[in-house]
């Protein structure tokens, strides 16, 4: 009875999962093969799909390596900035007495939910004022700032779960609050910090709208805007090429996911951004 209803469940799950599985499978197949005209089954091996690795696919486009480097710098810098700002701010909110703490906490929760994308027009103009428009630094700052409420929220959760007594013991042992934070508390929230670092890196790696709007030039192009431009500019879609770029783009994501599945689930389960 139980196994029969399980089989039934599996059948339904398999059915609704089919589109996704087809997309994943053909994502891989099509990146190294060419289907018959008007069909979808692979006919011949086609390594030319990967030509973007060793040549510029058309004149105006920057090299993929340059773009990949940009993407890495973008993702890594945002992740580091988010982490650096979050570990201090979250600690203050979780543990320190300072004026208007209540107000900051309420603000944090609201910002955590607030749809940042609605601010993009104003941010676009702020960046122009600051002279950071169309530069990687500008997008990095914006992305880090927009991820910050989420990061602080997550880190605050981790700080909150460290027993107060550890902190009290440190103070009693004669250490200053800063030293207590640095030597006693920070080591306890390392797992959270690692999770946030990975999460922010992935978020930066995948980010599309911000670079598209705030840094449209070729110099600051990242993989998302690069890939989008390749797709948009093609008169006749070359899905072999698109998919090869896609695989290239997704490889680090998949690798990070496989390596840090547990930590990531922590954040996706506890946090809710996205």
């Amino acid at each position: 009875m139980r196994s029969r209803s399980n089989l039934f469940l599996i059948a339904i799950l398999a059915l609704i999962s089919t589109p996704l599985v087809i997309m994943y499978v053909f994502q891989l197949i099509d990146s190294v093969s060419r289907p018959a005209l008007g069909g979808f089954l692979p006919q011949t091996w086609e390594l030319g799909n990967w030509r973007f690795l060793w040549e510029t696919i058309d004149s105006a486009r920057p090299s993929i390596w340059r773009v990949t480097f940009n993407t890495f710098v973008f993702a890594a810098s945002t992740a580091l900035l988010v982490c650096a700002f979050s570990i201090t701010a979250a600690y203050a909110l979780s543990r320190l007495n300072f004026p208007a703490r209540r107000f900051f906490l309420a603000g944090l929760i609201m910002l955590h939910a607030f749809p940042t994308i609605t601010l993009i027009i104003a941010i676009f103009i702020v960046l122009q004022f600051l002279g950071l428009y169309d530069s990687l630094i500008g997008v990095i700052l914006v992305k880090a700032a927009l991820e910050l409420p989420f990061g602080i929220w997550i880190m605050k959760g981790f700080y909150d779960s460290v027993p107060w007594e550890i902190e009290m013991a440190g103070v009693q042992d004669g250490a200053s609050r800063f030293r207590v934070w640095r030597e006693l508390i920070l080591p306890q929230v390392k797992p959270g910090l690692a999770a946030l670092l990975i999460f922010s890196f992935l978020a930066g790696w995948s980010e599309f709208i911000l670079p598209l709007v705030l840094a449209p030039g070729a110099d600051a192009q990242v993989l998302a805007t690069y890939m989008n431009a390749v797709i948009a500019d093609d008169m006749r879609p070359d899905y072999g090429l698109f998919k090869a770029i896609g695989v290239f783009y997704a490889l680090p994501v998949i690798a990070v996911y496989l390596l840090f599945q547990k930590q990531l689930m922590n954040i996706y389960g506890g946090g809710t951004k996205g």
């Binding site: 650096a84 700002f85 979050s86 201090t88 701010a89 600690y91 203050a92 909110l93 320190l96 007495n97 300072f98 004026p99 703490r101 900051f104 603000g107 910002l111 607030f114 940042t116 601010l119 104003a122 941010i123 702020v126 700052l141 914006v142 880090a144 700032a145 927009l146 910050l148 409420p149 602080i152 609050r177 800063f178």
Partner: peptide
């Protein structure tokens, strides 16, 4: 403690002001 709190929160606060409040 207040000083440490202010020092710890201000980088995030500046970022939030520039990219949330001002926008």
């Amino acid at each position: 403690q207040k000083l440490l709190g202010a020092a710890f929160i201000s980088p995030a606060l500046i970022a939030v002001i520039v990219f949330f409040l001002v926008p």
